[in-house]
């Protein structure tokens, strides 16, 4: 069994950790770190009898996750202070949203940049307000800048000059080059206020976004963590009509098959309870995704290079029509420094 498969098994059933020896724990910890799931693992096995040496490592991981939570909430608060005067909706996405809303998906989670969704017609005002509050551009490169503004679903990334933290301001949840066009207006209309001027997505849209992020917008790097988000979101969403609501939201965002695949993968790896009609029947290609998601060894190293390459190509294919991809890569190659 790959270390990633062990990680999945223990996340799904923490009691399975009891069978691990020193070598098993060593590989599990290295793999969980590489998948950014060590904090999550630490919470899952909390209270179990652990071998000497493991407990302090997991205590550190919980501690680090708590620091990440605190830092993420503070970035959100500073963005709130900058944006509240504009009176435009500002919606937290991903990890920051999970911890701000106190969701299980946020427990122990690593959190990177602050991701915000705002209406597209408010982007310019938001940009100005953030710059006034101390954020500045990361990439001063004109091509990248033009590319971002024209094709990506976000402003070029900005960083706060004092706090050294990144913010990504999105106006939708997939690049405009992607073949899918989620309904950004509906995302914003259905968002749920936190009571402080910020909002989070509707529970169904959180799942749709997590599925899109996992499957339609990348090469599945960090996929086990993104899939864990989906598992937690599905389990925690307490609504008897959840399946019907999720079906409606997924269809409205043109992501029904993406959500179905994400649910099948989550069910297969984490045992997530899913509505069979919504998830659909297993397909042969599902196994290909599972192999990619589990491609990591007990040294934290990626395995299955051919599968990884296939997903890398797929991710660019999903994002951009081929001619545009060629142009993008050409410009990137031209700009490589000599000898690189």
């Amino acid at each position: 069994m790959s270390a990633a498969a062990t990680l999945v098994r223990v996340l799904r059933d923490p009691g399975a950790a009891a069978t691990l020896d020193v070598a098993g724990w060593t590989g599990l910890i290295a793999c969980a770190r590489a998948e950014q799931l060590l904090g999550t693992l630490a919470w899952r096995v909390d209270g179990l009898a652990l071998p000497a040496g493991v407990a302090p490592i997991l205590a550190d991981a919980r501690d680090a996750a708590e620091a990440a939570r605190r830092g993420a909430l503070w970035e959100a608060e500073m963005a709130r202070r900058a944006l509240v005067p504009l009176g435009v909706p500002a919606i937290l996405l991903k990890g920051t949203a999970f911890v701000a809303a106190g969701l299980a998906a946020g427990q122990g989670r690593a959190i990177g940049d602050l991701d915000l969704l705002v209406p597209r017609d408010a982007m310019a005002a938001v940009e100005t307000a953030l710059i006034d509050a101390g954020w500045e551009w990361v990439k001063p490169d004109p091509y990248d800048d033009a590319y971002y503004r024209r094709w990506m679903h976000e402003l070029p990334p900005m960083i706060h000059r004092e706090r050294d933290r990144m913010i990504d301001v999105h106006h939708t949840i997939l690049p405009l080059t992607a073949r899918r066009r989620p309904d950004a207006g509906a995302l914003i209309a259905a968002a749920q206020p936190l009571g402080n001027g910020l909002s989070v997505l509707h529970p169904a849209d959180m799942i749709v976004h997590a599925a899109a992020h996992l499957l339609a917008d990348g090469d599945l790097a960090g996929g086990l963590r993104n899939l864990w988000d989906i598992d937690r979101l599905v389990r925690e969403w307490d609504d008897p009509d959840a399946a019907a609501v999720l079906r409606r939201h997924a269809a409205a965002h043109n992501l029904a098959d993406t959500v179905a695949l994400a649910l099948r993968l989550s069910h297969r790896l984490y045992g997530t309870p899913v509505d069979p009609a919504l998830a659909g029947a297993a397909r042969p290609s599902d196994g290909w995704f599972v192999r990619r998601l589990l491609a990591r060894d007990g040294w934290g190293r990626p395995t299955r290079p051919a599968t990884r390459l296939a997903f890398y190509v797929r991710s660019h294919w999903l994002r951009m029509p081929p001619a545009m991809l060629a142009r993008h890569l050409w410009i990137k190659w031209l700009r490589k420094p000599p000898g690189a």
């Binding site: 605190r70 830092g71 706090r163």
Partner: peptide
């Protein structure tokens, strides 16, 4: 001054 909410 250590500010707890920001960790700064």
């Amino acid at each position: 001054v250590f500010h707890r909410p920001s960790g700064q």
